[in-house]
Simulated assay, not measured.
Amino acid sequence: MAENTGDIVLPPTKRFRKIPIYVVEEHNDALQFIYSAIGGKKLPLEGTTLLHLDAHPDMLIDRKLKGTEARAGRNLLPLLQIENWIVPAAAAGHIAYVVWLRPPWAKQFRDGTRAFHVGDQPTTGLLRVDSTEPYYLSDALYSSHLINKRKLTFTVAELSDMSTSKQTIQELAETINISQPYVLDIDLDFFSTGNPFLLQYENIGLYDLLEPIFELKLPESDDEKEMEKAVELRERQLEELEKLFLYLEEHGNLEKYEGEKTELFDKVSRLSDVVIAEAEKLGEPPDWWLVFAAGCTRDQGGLPHHTSSEEQIRNMITSGLKPLLQRLPPPVLITVARSTEDGYCPPHQVELIQSLVLQTLSEVYDTDEPALHYLRVNTY
């Protein structure tokens, strides 16, 4: 159960007349509206809860992001991507509690509540966590020693796509234990989820070919030294892969690569031959950086993929989302991410999902007209 423990957070000094709704395309753009609400004293400076409905946790950290950058206010915003915008805000203290409601097909974390810290790795200043979850080990984000650290409480629970009883919804509401002030954050790919990397050179099954190259070898125990060693090896693996694919992006092949010819080099070399042959058939040069990005999602089973039927989408909203929201206190503000240009919410379904979600929000809450931020050029 997620509980707001620790220091007492004073309520914001001001309130919105009606609950604002901000609709963005890329999910990390939602954070600017949370920061604006903090600046306008609609949200407290510290301790806010984020109720996050999404097919993806978005709880990573850019491996090169420094703690000082995470605590730099709005200067942080241009440094973020869709998968790593929440934890940096937690490092600044603005978000203290995250509840990730996932659809049944998203299993990146086990259900339940855990608390961990986010802070600076002392020798590098890079932002890291002391969580030993595979989600963080796979990106070499674990560090047992942190400074300037903040506690983050993280709850994961499933909101089913099947017809859900009132008792089940009530139990879920009690489990996640949402209290004010909080932000309601909805990614439309929660209701129907695409994995755009599956379409990349699908004739050769590229996504599956990447698995043995990017696979994570988990430590055999949770001993601190074993964890640190595993992270060090993973960091080396990711750095070598990044170097190899950067070379491919610049030179098109590895024939004159002057780096060490490791086992990893051999694997990438064999893969590059297959990709180049397929790209020639398609009459297009390979996008090696996109191949690298796909590989970075391939460990731990890969990204979720589930295209819902229209009936399933409607049922998730009417039998899942709406009755749950009716059992929770109203949020301070609402952010909605479309996530369709990058292929995570199927483009042919996004308008239907958006209209149904916005209609539901207007029925449950006293809301302003949605601000369709995705129709404007993003500026910070």
Rank of each mutant, 00 (worst) to 15 (best):
E3T: 13
G6N: 06
I8S: 14
K14A: 13
R15I: 01
V23D: 01
A30V: 06
A37H: 11
K41E: 15
E46R: 12
A55M: 06
D58C: 00
M59V: 11
L60Y: 08
D62I: 01
K66F: 09
A72Y: 04
R74Q: 13
N75D: 14
P78D: 01
I82K: 08
V87F: 02
A91E: 05
W100I: 02
A106K: 01
D111C: 12
G112Y: 08
P122E: 04
P122F: 10
L126R: 09
L127K: 06
L127M: 12
D130I: 01
Y135Q: 05
L141Y: 00
K151D: 12
K151G: 12
T155N: 11
A157D: 14
T164S: 14
S165I: 10
S165H: 09
K166V: 03
L172Q: 07
E174M: 08
P181N: 13
F190L: 12
F190C: 05
D208I: 06
L210M: 06
F214N: 01
E215V: 15
P219V: 00
S221I: 05
E224W: 01
E224V: 14
E226S: 15
V231D: 07
E232H: 12
E239S: 14
L248F: 03
H251G: 01
K256Q: 13
E258A: 15
K261G: 00
E263Q: 11
D266T: 11
K267N: 12
L271M: 05
V275L: 05
I276H: 05
F292E: 08
A294L: 03
G295V: 06
T297H: 15
G301Q: 00
L303T: 08
L303G: 02
H305A: 13
H306R: 11
E310Q: 09
I313R: 00
R314C: 12
N315T: 15
S319C: 13
V332F: 06
I334Q: 08
T340W: 10
D342Y: 07
H348Y: 13
L358Q: 04
L358N: 01
D366K: 01
D368R: 11
V377L: 11
T379S: 11
